[in-house]
């Protein structure tokens, strides 16, 4: 039996399953983009109100706050963790922005971002250094941060947002809303960081196999802390932008966004088991959730309560498909 003949036969036999595995991996990572395109086409054909520039801008700006949070959440989930604190940080961020605005627009952005980063730092240290479960640490942060936001402002703080601060959230560049620019540039930078830097490689490595990453010399604790700091910072910033957008700091803002951001990431093919995911997928998840809300909002005879129902069912279907695909891949 010739060696070359054997290997050729093996290759021929192995080719089909390998191609299938690669196809499944492709569906997992890029499926959400396809579904988003499909959903956009269907909605455009079905609903005359949908395919207008103004409506697309509505979807984009509404999704931008969730989008920023979803970037951090995606990093954290790929790392193998969770960040439940981000929704409360939006509330805290928006309140702090209102308090800091008198000192300048830069303060109104910087203070919430730093506060979010500080919460992320505490979360990260408890998780990475003290070895506590991310779920419960960030759950405690969810409660505690919301408490702090409510202590700072029982009711919403109305702020005047002329000048730069208001412009950041409500202005346009080249005819496109700034918020949309911010979230798209944010995702682009995040994608580069995730795929082209040593930090990104480390995040994937830790999420894939923490023990192996440690043995290979990856500074696991430092990367983990840094990732929670990034997530917290983005959430605080999202709150600041929300305050600028709504001209008020609202201590109850952002409730449930932590769950929505996890949902968006999962819909976008980021696996909860860690080590797998793309920023493009997460962005598609964010936009899909935004699209569902937008369509249900505008179908006159459907009450907005169906938004939750539809989002929940959609999440379930997405996860079902993910689970089936993952099993096929093995």
């Amino acid at each position: 039996m010739s060696v070359s003949g054997t290997s050729a036969a093996v290759r021929a036999e192995g080719a089909a399953p390998e191609r299938r595995a690669r196809l499944i991996a492709l569906i997992q990572s890029r499926g959400a983009i396809g579904v988003l395109l499909l959903a956009t086409i269907v909605a455009s054909l079905r609903f005359p109100f949908f395919p207008t520039v103004a409506n697309f801008e509505n979807i984009g700006t509404a999704a931008s706050f969730l989008g920023l949070v979803a970037i951090g959440q995606t990093f954290v989930i790929i790392l193998g963790g969770f960040d439940l604190s981000v929704g409360s940080l939006i509330g805290l961020g928006s309140v702090l922005a209102a308090y800091a605005l008198p000192y300048g627009w830069w303060a109104a952005l910087l203070v919430p971002a730093l506060a979010g980063g500080a919460v992320g730092l505490v979360d990260g240290l408890l998780i990475a250094r003290a070895g506590m479960a991310p779920f419960i640490v960030t759950l405690a942060a969810l409660l505690g941060v919301r408490g702090i936001a409510l202590v700072l402002a029982k009711n919403s703080l109305v702020i005047a947002t002329p000048g730069v601060f208001g412009l950041i959230a409500n202005g346009q560049i080249l005819g496109i809303d700034n918020l949309i620019w911010i979230v798209f540039i944010g995702f682009a930078i995040a994608a580069i960081v995730l795929n082209r830097t040593r930090y990104g490689v480390a995040v994937f490595a830790i999420g894939g196999n923490e023990e192996a990453a440690r043995m290979l010399g990856v500074p696991v604790a430092r990367i983990k802390v840094l990732t929670y700091v990034v997530s917290g910072t983005l959430a605080g910033l999202s709150g600041a932008l929300l305050a600028a957008h709504l001209s008020s700091g609202i201590s109850t803002a952002g409730q449930g966004e932590e769950l929505k951001s996890i949902a968006a990431a999962v819909i976008g093919g980021v696996l909860l088991t860690g080590g797998v995911g793309t920023m493009a997928g997460a962005l598609s998840g964010v936009l899909l959730l935004g699209l569902i809300e937008n369509v249900i909002d505008q179908i006159g005879n459907l009450s907005s309560y169906y938004q939750n129902l539809a989002s929940g069912v959609f999440l379930l279907i997405a996860v079902l498909i993910q689970t089936v695909l993952t099993r096929r891949r093995r």
């Binding site: 769950l259 996890i262 009450s303 169906y306 989002s311 929940g312 999440l315 379930l316 996860v319």
Partner: peptide, 29 residues
């Protein structure tokens, strides 16, 4: 979902958190 389809409990119950609240609100408008 968890037992038969091996879905992560966090995600299946998260989906139901969202869906059950929506159903409750829709039922009573």
């Amino acid at each position: 979902l968890i037992a038969a389809l091996d879905i992560n409990p966090l995600i299946s119950s998260l989906a139901l958190l969202v869906a059950a609240r929506g159903t409750a609100e829709a039922l009573l408008d």
